[in-house]
Design a protein around this nucleic acid. Sequence first.
DNA 1: CAAATATAATAGTATTACTATCATTCGCGC
DNA 2: GCGCGAATGATAGTAATACTATTATATTTG
Lengths: 222, 222
Amino acid sequence: MIDLNINITINSVLYTKDPDSSDLGRNIITYSIELINEIGFEKFTFKKLSQKINSPESSVYRYFNNKHMLLIYLTSWYWSWTVYKIALATLNIKSSEEKLKNAIDILTKPILIDNSFSYVNEVLLNKIIITESVKAYHSIDVDIENKKGYFESYKDVINRVSTLILEVNPTFEYPHMLITTVIEGAQQQHYYSEHLPSLTDTKKNKDSISNFYNKLIFKLIS
Amino acid sequence: MIDLNINITINSVLYTKDPDSSDLGRNIITYSIELINEIGFEKFTFKKLSQKINSPESSVYRYFNNKHMLLIYLTSWYWSWTVYKIALATLNIKSSEEKLKNAIDILTKPILIDNSFSYVNEVLLNKIIITESVKAYHSIDVDIENKKGYFESYKDVINRVSTLILEVNPTFEYPHMLITTVIEGAQQQHYYSEHLPSLTDTKKNKDSISNFYNKLIFKLIS
DNA sequence: CAAATATAATAGTATTACTATCATTCGCGC
DNA sequence: GCGCGAATGATAGTAATACTATTATATTTG
């Protein structure tokens, strides 16, 4: 995939101070991604992060109110990046089927290459999305946070791909349901294939997850 | 559904002392289900629970090492109960298709009636499964916990329904993938229809989630 | 009725999740 | 190159969390 090294813009409701505006802020993002991968979101604390980046804990709090907000920021970054990738992968393609297929590939295949231009390691971030992102929107404050617009970039992905589904079959009744099922199903399967293999059937080959969901979508909408 | 008021047996690796063996233990289960529903799993603590049941915090710790173990216990109870319901709903039915359909209904429809014989409120427990259960197996210790057998009852559900799928179509290659996609997809949709409605398409009618996944399964395997 | 077992009452510790204050440094405008 | 403001650093402190430990008091069972 062509890398244009564009900047992902994140809605300012998702931070107290923009992490993209300073070295410290970018360090917080880079090393929180590393640390969450190392020790998991539950054991991750701003204190441990601040030790890793040699800055006081209170400086981290200037960017994010708590680790929950940081996780929402990271998921939002990921989905904004995904929107961008889908836009690129569907650009100038005439066939609706091909556009949809390209989008599904982006959504179901694991991220294997880190772009490495930016301070975000996309491979590690993808692992966080698979393992931790459900915790971002399964909280008691989900309704309040939804009203504040915390989940807009994920909704953007869902709406764009729903549109692609309707391009292929304008009478299909459940485009949102189908695409959320596929995105989150694929993430589950990646998680299971690594940690709970008896819950999946991926021994056969690397692309079986992506193939399965591709077939699922096209069988259902045609 | 006929209620036989049977006892759900839970593997002893899931507790320090069996909560089903004492009034205090049963109280811990009953009121932890209530409290987790009220304040969410993140804000739930053994201290708050102990105040609710008027027992010292240290007594709760005799039953469960921490709230994470309690959550795993609750999910395990739920899936054991689900296995039992599927067994009942497929008993004496000859048609493989009908058996599978009955199982899918159990797995995709929300729980509306509390059996109320036992100390477990199944309606509230179902809400916990929908909102919190992902947190039970998305942890950094998942591999260790899997080896200890913490997730056996969920695997049991998946294996039984996979068998039903293979009864309908013995050559279908991805029964586990399909059924985990459906179970977790349905839970997601119930969550979305309540909290993030723009991610789903459930306005139309109450059974649209169940209908969607029923169609999905039968379209894919036939 | 004694012994074993469970629970209650109480206390204590390390860590977490913050908040507050003040000193220092760094970039920019003049 | 000096002064000013903004960002960061250094340090301290607090309430809540997540436990562990100890001893007293019930309760159950043999």
